[in-house]
């Protein structure tokens, strides 16, 4: 690998940086190669490691030292923030005023919908729990009946024991279903909040 190939690799992997930081870094390493001289090219490349490794080191260290510039440079912000801030405030106020007749009911609707969904899920869980309890109760009784019946009628006893095992199976099945459902709901809620948080940024 020669210097040009190396720098091409570095460019590729540093693309994720903001433009200013990217150009800065590329210039630094270009200069470094220049100052090291052609005769030291191989040595420098060996020292730096693969372009991928070097780039990820640079990215990590820049992040650690917190020296990556934000996309809007501070100078720009300073010059425009006053005008823009005021304009934005008026603009947003107008939008809010005009959108209120439609926006407010939609917002309320959304809250109600979420509330109903949560209640539905809770009710469903409750019902499933009750069903599970009933099955457990029936299963237990059947088992006792079956065992006590074995002495008088073997076939009848076995049928009853079978029924009790069947209901036990269903309870286990419901248990698994509930665990799965809980996970799904939990996952859904975290994803939803993540999305909302992201959008607010």
């Amino acid at each position: 690998m020669n210097r040009e190939e190396y720098m091409a690799g570095l460019r590729k992997y540093l693309k994720r940086l903001p433009k200013k930081d990217y150009e800065n870094a590329i210039q630094y390493f270009n200069e470094y190669f220049e100052d090291a001289g052609r005769e030291n090219e191989e040595k420098v490349i060996k020292e730096l490691g693969t372009p991928k490794q070097a780039a990820s080191d640079i990215l990590n260290n820049l992040l650690e030292e917190q020296v990556i510039t934000k996309e809007n440079s501070q100078i720009n912000e300073k010059n425009t923030i006053h005008n823009k801030g005021l304009f934005n405030a008026i603009w947003i106020t107008c939008l809010v005023l005009f959108a209120a007749p439609i926006g407010l009911p939609i917002l309320i609707c959304l809250f109600v919908l979420i509330f109903v969904a949560v209640v539905l899920i809770l009710v469903f869980a409750f019902v499933v729990c009750i069903i599970g309890l009933v099955f457990a109760n029936v299963g237990g009784r059947l088992l006792i009946c079956g065992i006590s019946m074995l002495s008088s009628s073997v076939a009848g006893g076995i049928v009853l024991i079978g029924c009790s095992l069947f209901s036990t199976g269903i309870i286990i099945l419901i248990g698994f279903l509930m665990v799965y459902l809980c996970r799904l709901v939990g996952f859904g809620i975290t994803r939803l909040t993540q999305r909302i948080v992201k959008r607010q940024r």
Binding site: Y32, V44, L48, G49, A54, A55, D57, I58, E65, V67
Partner: peptide, 14 residues
Amino acid sequence: RESTLYPILRKLEN
């Protein structure tokens, strides 16, 4: 390595 030194230089500059 240069990949460590460069970020430190940037930090001093910042």
